[in-house]
Design a protein around this nucleic acid. Structure first.
Length: 607
RNA sequence: GGGGUGGUAGUUAAGUAGGUUAUAACGCCGGCCUGUCACGCCGGAGGCCGCGGGUUCGAGUCCCGUCCACCCCGCCA
């Protein structure tokens, strides 16, 4: 007897059939989403990647199909041949195919299913560990199907755009030389070079610059990157970048091109128009008004620096902070009566993780007076200056944090988002894109040493070059980040192609000739042979997919993500190696490690 | 490296003040049911209370340790 698939080709997806298809003979395949057995008729919701269609097994249409349908259970994989019938008035408005149903004449059970460990549906509250362990089932859920389809569409759209713009897609090595500084590298032992290790590329940065030297002029790659750093909701140890590098352009040319890509992707995937040019904002302004280098402009709350106004206010907490070189950061919240006393008191707890001791608040009364625990201790003149700076109106609440500049900004930036969220002030339907430009070229470590904020090949702004030696902290970089809804979607810079300038930057960083040679020798050598002026950018494809799909976690736009500890609960990775494999790699484990004795499997107690 | 939340049936949760046989919903199994679509009705099965130790006559509950997941700070473009 011929198999079902030999007799029938699938004719429609489970999301395709409409009223206009009434009377058609169709073949559907999919999984049992739900089954309702009425003894007489059996109803089945059949699900595939496109949607859900109701299939009816009526003994009068096919006794055989009806008899078999009695055996169907959740997640059985089946094929059905049948006829499309109108449901008349009995429609189901909750599904796209709700006007019709398919009366089955033939049923094939391709394979049965055990009862799944959790229901395959979107309003799911199952623990993420359980879902990750059975990821292939979690991925059957319509929401994840859609997220990954959105991601695929975005990838396709970006590729098409870049190809049209005459970019070449070129692959670069994953296994590269270990580069100190920046993100920690994953490491791969070399069997053929005993005792030596490759690093997994944290990005193709150096290679793409070499491709510019090689004359490819326009390069892109949709490429996996690896970073051995602690994970977050929006960070995975392996993630994907849309990596771009161009020769013979400056900031404006590159940004214009990239805006075209973002607009194209948003239009292709969501049908949304991103207005261009995208707004630009200096890094300094972003820090001043939003406390972060990736402001979410869907929210109108702004911060201001009231340090000067608070000098000599008489309020001890502020005075002490200022004396210690700190700043006082203020945020005005209009219609402050929406902030209850318990919310305001709760802000101190919210702020603590940022290293801040407290959050002060004052309610503005008619006439500009403050109702605040510390109002009596606050000089009138200072109060008036603060009111003016913040634009305070009666009924507002002013929030204050006094601390080291970085701490105060970070904390107030976080409070801004927190309050905006609590009060529902974030405009969820908006796409707020902006470029953050001219960040500092260097940053100070805790020990006061200078380090590259981006990477050491980032060019300084021309008008700041003179300060490289005299006042390096003031030097701004020719770098830019594209921020969408408060998410850093991408970032890049114009690179240094002038040898003398590169040496000055190295020397500001305290990197001597020998060290530069050891770390980046092959790049510097390449730069002796006529490097073109060039610059580039890299987008986090996972984050773009997150934005486009509305997913709350990066894990929801990655087919097989890792947990926060970097493990794969489904495949059970990483694992230990047995003694023989280790010997082949000339690796000896530290004696105090479980598994060092050569036991395989890495069985942890309790697992 | 640090802080927080959680872990009880397949899943999600409840579990009082330490005290009989550890609850509920959904799911699952069996039966009934021609129109359901969160189908309905009747019946049933299902537990290493994350793991290890301690206190106690007695621990899901109290104490110590540990593992796992998630969220955050540090870190990381």
């Amino acid at each position: 007897m011929a198999s079902f698939l030999a007799k029938h080709n699938k004719t429609h997806s489970c999301g395709a059939l409409r009223k206009s298809d009434e009377g058609a003979t169709v073949v559907l395949t999919g999984w049992i989403d739900n089954r309702r057995d009425h003894g007489g008729c059996v109803f089945v919701d059949l699900r595939d990647r496109a949607g859900v269609t109701q299939v009816v097994f009526d003994p009068q249409a096919s006794a055989d199909a009806h008899e078999r349908a009695g055996r169907l259970r959740s997640e059985f994989c089946i094929g059905v041949a049948g006829k499309v019938l109108s449901r008349g008035d009995n429609i189901n408005p909750r599904i796209a195919t709700g006007d019709i149903e398919v009366v089955a004449h033939e049923l094939e059970i391709f394979s049965p299913s055990e009862t799944p460990p959790f229901p395959i549906e979107d309003r799911i509250d199952t623990n993420e560990a359980v879902r990750l362990k059975h990821r292939y089932l979690d991925l059957r859920r319509p929401a994840l199907q859609r997220n990954l389809q959105v991601r695929s569409a975005a990838t396709h759209s970006a590729r098409q755009y870049l190809a049209e713009c005459d970019f070449s897609e070129i692959e670069t090595p994953f296994m590269v030389k270990y580069t100190p500084g920046g993100a920690r590298n994953f490491v791969v032992p070399s069997r053929l070079s005993p005792g030596q290790f490759y690093a997994l590329a944290e990005s193709p940065q150096i290679y793409k610059q070499l491709l510019m030297v090689a004359g490819f002029e326009r390069y892109y790659q949709i490429v996996r990157c690896f970073r051995d750093e602690d994970l977050r909701q929006d960070r995975q140890p392996e993630f994907t970048q849309i990596d771009i590098e161009m020769s013979f352009v400056e900031e404006s040319g590159l940004q214009e091109l990239v805006e075209g890509m973002i607009a194209r992707v948003w239009n292709d995937v969501l049908g949304v128009d991103i207005p261009r040019p995208i707004r630009r904002m200096g890094y300094a302004e972003a820090m001043e008004k939003y406390g972060v280098d990736k402001p979410d402009l869907r929210l109108d709350l702004v911060l201001c620096d009231v340090t000067e106004a608070c000098k000599g206010s008489g309020f001890r907490i502020f005075d002490t902070a200022i004396e210690r070189g700190g700043i006082v950061k203020c945020m005005r919240v209009p219609e402050g009566d929406r902030l209850t006393r318990s919310m305001l008191d709760g802000l101190t707890d919210f702020a603590k993780p940022y290293g801040v001791k407290g959050v002060a608040f004052a309610r503005i009364e008619e006439g500009g007076g403050w109702r605040a625990p510390f109002a009596k201790n606050f000089a009138d003149r200072a109060r008036e200056s603060v009111n003016a700076l913040a634009g305070a109106q009666p009924g507002d609440v002013l929030l204050f944090v006094a601390d080291k500049p970085k701490t105060a900004n970070t904390c107030m930036g976080a409070i801004r988002l927190h309050i905006g969220d609590k009060l529902g002030m974030i405009r969820e339907d908006e796409w707020a894109c902006l470029w953050i430009t001219d960040p500092p070229l260097f940053e100070r470590g805790d020990d006061g040493t200078l380090a590259s904020a981006h990477h050491p090949f980032t060019a300084p702004r021309e008008q700041d070059e003179g300060a490289l030696e005299s006042n390096p902290d003031s030097v701004r970089a020719r770098a830019y980040d594209l921020v969408i809804n408060g998410v850093e979607a991408g970032g890049g810079s114009i690179r240094i192609h002038d040898r003398a300038l590169q040496e000055r930057v190295f020397s500001a960083l305290g990197i001597g000739d020998e060290e530069a040679e050891a770390k980046f020798g092959f790049l510097l050598e390449a730069f002796r042979y006529g490097p073109p002026p060039h610059g580039g950018i890299a987008f986090g494809l996972d984050r773009l997919a997150m934005l486009l799909s509305g997913a709350e976690s990066l894990r929801d736009v990655i087919a097989f993500p890792k947990t926060q500890r970097g493990t794969d609960l489904m495949a059970d990775a990483p694992t230990s190696l047995d003694e023989r494999q280790l010997r082949e790699l000339f690796i000896q484990l530290a004696p105090n490690l479980p598994g060092a004795s050569g036991a395989s499997g890495g069985t942890a107690p309790g697992s």
